[in-house]
Design a protein around this nucleic acid. Structure first.
Lengths: 337, 337
DNA sequence: GGCCAGTATGTTTACGTAAACATATAAGTA
DNA sequence: TACTTATATGTTTACGTAAACATACTGGCC
């Protein structure tokens, strides 16, 4: 008996089935003409010796792979869990597979990551946001891969963007809070200001306040990752200042929930003593004792549509280039303002 | 000027730098002897023409890849988000990359997915739980990849398992509830009973009740995905029955939170009228008006350790085979029982 | 001066697959 | 009948890389 220390190849299947390697290839990929008899002989030979195709060889030869690179800023936030879920669902349906990595909101890491992911010769890539370095842009252009940018639409996409206007979300929140009569605001965010989309929301928020003549007393950016506990700490700190705001805008629901916790623990009434607003519309908000005012975002849908776009059969990309798909958002007025 | 429609290869870099392709390969991989002068010439030539290595060719030739296959039941649960986060962190540190897919708690899909992922010739694979079909076991054995099984340790791992005892968690919860004086129980779970780890927790729970002479009135399994709303609906339904329990054990925190919501909305006191317990110890529980009794699990750590194991330099696997790493759990006594 | 070890490079080849091209038989059509 | 066309298979080759195996030049040592 022949000793194999390597995994079976098409040649092994071919020998077993008494055909050529090319015939095996045709059977496996369902291309070209194959008689029923040979097809079944090859199939059973493959099953018998446990043949598993080698995608590396396939990808090398055919110069394309069913891979899609996915670049996310973090997995430490359930937002990106939903996005990744949408991407995975869409890709899986089309027989594609995601390979991914996280940038931790760092441009340098994005550059490195994109370069590394492109070395797998994926057929597409998902990027978060619209801001990317020239290095990344050049690498992507040279690779000739399809690109989907998600989350944000305030800017010019490389190819096609699936998201919502972060600026408009900030604007809508400010407008709502102003309508409730609040005038003195504070902002609380995290990630050392590297979260560009949070920055755009703040920009929209800030501008709307300015236009209304209201005051943004302080912009507080924590260097720690966003969490309820950090939101609680920041809120306590903000409210302890002499220059006390009557409303706080948080960069996301986790921080805002920490704010709610602080207020509940200290008998601070919402919205009478302080108004709060978050962002994302995470499911757990429904279970809180106080309904948080927030902006619900189509997270899963952004991922799903991006995945679908990237796994579509080759279509004319030129007509889509630079276009934006606005999936909108939904301001949910809760009890906190 | 030469027209290239293909991406630059080592040959292109070699030509530009006036060396052989093999020298380029040596520079790129830092193997063998290379003079400083040639090294920098190759480096700048590569940078100038935008060379990006082709991992498909590299993997094909060297018969190994820095890929790790990751098989999870779902991404619709933040539990697996944490796990994936841990895996990704560990792998990234070691220069490995995850390729993943979800099984939706289906064995057939697991078989298919594992086969597909193995076609990328990964150096390792992460599986969820210890129960796998013979097909999957055979495929993995034939592929000769390292295996890490996560979440569960109640059984015999293929190689090494990182998790906690689900049975013990069920037992601990039952013991705690019994100690509070509860005697008439109901169970509420989801995923059509295909979640084997939830089944093990129930098993431990059930057995402990039996040993104590308490009653498990009903086991309710929803076919819908787990969510707070579904937990709320199930709770309403269970409490409306003539045969009313005085305690409900949920398969996870989301369902249990739905139970809390139902009780709060209907003036049902916890734990006087009904005791509740969940599982996972998700962060948002801290913000609920009522502290849920639950079991906190080391989700991130399971992923992290599994990832670390799979990205370790080749060590002797034999000594580890069949071993289990118990990362424990932590019963958190809340206000619901 | 001859020899060895270390350093620095080059040449050939194989990894497993699918594209491109070639061949052959059967069935239909002018 | 000759001539296409559809069907069914085989042969050769290239994808980009790294392993294996050369080759050549240095400097130190007896």
């Amino acid at each position: 008996m022949k000793i194999r220390n390597t995994r079976p190849t098409m040649d092994d299947v071919a020998e077993k089935a008494g055909v050529s390697q090319m015939t095996v290839s045709r059977v496996m990929n369902g291309k070209g003409y194959i008689s029923e008899e040979v097809r079944s002989r090859v199939r059973s030979a493959a099953a018998e010796i446990g043949y598993v195709q080698n995608r590396l060889a396939r990808g090398l030869r055919s110069e394309k792979t069913p891979l899609v690179a996915v670049v996310l800023p973090t997995l430490g936030n359930s937002v990106f869990n939903d996005v990744l879920s949408g991407i995975t669902d869409a890709l899986t349906q089309a027989g594609y597979r995601p390979v991914f990595g996280v940038t931790e909101y760092s441009e340098a890491k994005e550059d490195e990551l994109v370069r590394d992911l492109l070395s797998w010769r994926p057929s597409g890539i998902v990027l978060t946001g619209l801001e990317h370095s020239d290095v990344t842009r050049a690498a992507i252009a040279a690779a000739g891969v399809r690109v989907a940018e998600i989350m944000d639409i305030d800017g010019t996409p490389i190819s096609l963007a699936f998201g919502m206007s972060q600026i408009a979300a900030g604007h809508a929140t400010a407008k709502h809070m102003l309508a409730q009569g609040h005038r003195r605001f504070a902002y609380a965010g995290s990630h050392s200001g590297r979260d560009l989309r949070a920055g755009k929301r703040l920009e929209g928020f800030r501008r709307t306040l300015r236009d209304a003549g209201a005051t943004l007393l302080s912009e507080n950016i924590s260097s720690k990752p966003s969490s309820m506990m950090e939101g609680r700490r920041m809120t306590a700190e903000i409210l302890s200042r002499p220059d006390r705001p009557d409303a706080i805008y948080y960069s996301n629901d986790d921080l805002a929930t920490g704010g709610i916790m602080h207020c509940l623990s200290n008998g601070i009434r919402m919205p009478e003593d302080i108004a709060l607003a978050g962002f994302n519309g995470l499911p757990f908000l429904e279970a809180l004792p106080v309904g948080l005012t927030t902006v619900e975002t189509p997270r899963y849908e952004m991922g799903k549509q991006a995945g679908k776009f990237l796994s579509m059969p080759e279509t004319d990309l030129a007509e889509d280039a630079g276009r934006v798909v606005d999936l909108g958002f939904n301001l949910i007025a809760g009890q906190t303002c």
